[in-house]
């Protein structure tokens, strides 16, 4: 029997805004399968986004959904999770939203190790506004605001998350559809900040300017550039240039989770008070 996605989709909200060839729909399906695997109750699950193409996802799914302001998903989600620690809170959004304008909230949510699952749909570009370069646009690539090639170095989202203190960090691509729900499931079940970067292609705003003639070329790139983390042993930085290292990149079950820490603080405060 095929999987019933409609059970989790809001009636009447499709078609989505994403262009033909965009991988965001694949990620949406992966998220739904992961939520189903985790048996999350709709009323007890919140999906929080910022602004951008990826951040339109919450409107399509039948949960508590918050389409916040640009870059602020992690900060809204932090307030929601602290107010209701038993609520499952999942953030979704793009690369520009998450690590440019929202970079400060992103790293500090990682530092706190608050129990959020954050899915970053990294398509290397600001798609919704017409293809301006993001912190994840490859150096030298063309965007509507890099007519002479991108002069900026690139953010490695997964490394940023690990460095900032996230305790579950994974990466896959929109091509690796089955790995998406596997990693999101692990992220949801992980107690602490879980970052799942899903590298995606934006044929409309990125591909056209960068010699990806069709959406399938972008998919082929994701397929060819991906290398499972297990196979990277012994490889140098240079060997890995242009590669997308996939799989679970970091997992630490020892660091305390923020809401649990705050509950202990409350107990201390109340003992003192009593």
């Amino acid at each position: 029997m095929s999987f019933d996605y409609e059970k989790y989709l809001r009636p009447g909200k499709l078609p989505h805004i994403w262009c033909p060839g965009c991988g965001h729909g694949i990620i949406l399906k992966g998220l739904i399968r992961a939520i189903d695997k985790c048996r999350l109750a709709k009323n007890r699950t919140a999906i929080v986004s910022g602004i951008g193409c990826a951040s339109r996802l919450p409107g399509y799914v039948d949960f508590n959904t918050v389409h916040t302001a640009h870059g602020r998903a992690a900060a809204f989600a932090t307030g929601m999770k602290l107010a209701d620690p038993e609520l499952t809170v999942i953030c979704v959004g793009g690369d520009g939203d998450g690590v440019a304008i929202g970079g400060n909230h992103f790293i500090h949510a990682c530092r706190r190790n608050i129990d959020l699952t954050y899915i970053i749909m990294n398509n290397n570009i600001y798609g919704m506004t017409g293809g301006q370069f993001s912190p994840c646009t490859p150096t030298g690539a063309f965007a509507s605001t890099t007519p002479y090639g991108n002069p900026d170095p690139v953010f490695d989202i997964a490394r940023l998350a690990i460095g900032a203190g996230a305790t579950f960090v994974a990466r896959t691509t929109a091509y690796h559809a089955l790995q998406i729900d596997k990693l999101i499931t692990e992220g949801i079940l992980h107690k602490g900040m879980a970052i799942i970067e899903v590298v995606d292609g934006c044929p409309t705003s990125y591909g056209r300017r960068n010699k990806f003639k069709s959406p399938s070329d972008m998919m082929t790139w994701l397929k060819d550039a991906a290398i499972p983390v297990e196979k990277t042993e012994g490889m140098s930085e240079k060997d890995l240039e242009g590669k997308i290292v996939t799989g679970i990149l970091h997992r630490d079950e020892t660091r305390p989770e923020y809401c649990e820490q705050y509950a202990l603080l409350r107990e201390r405060a109340q003992r003192k008070e009593g």
Partner: peptide, 21 residues
């Protein structure tokens, strides 16, 4: 719950999120 956020914007965001809950 008290939380000192990473910046002024984050503080306002967390407040709105908590109120939503």
């Amino acid at each position: 719950t008290f939380i000192q956020m990473e910046d002024e914007i984050g503080a306002m965001a967390a407040v709105i999120g908590a109120s939503l809950c």
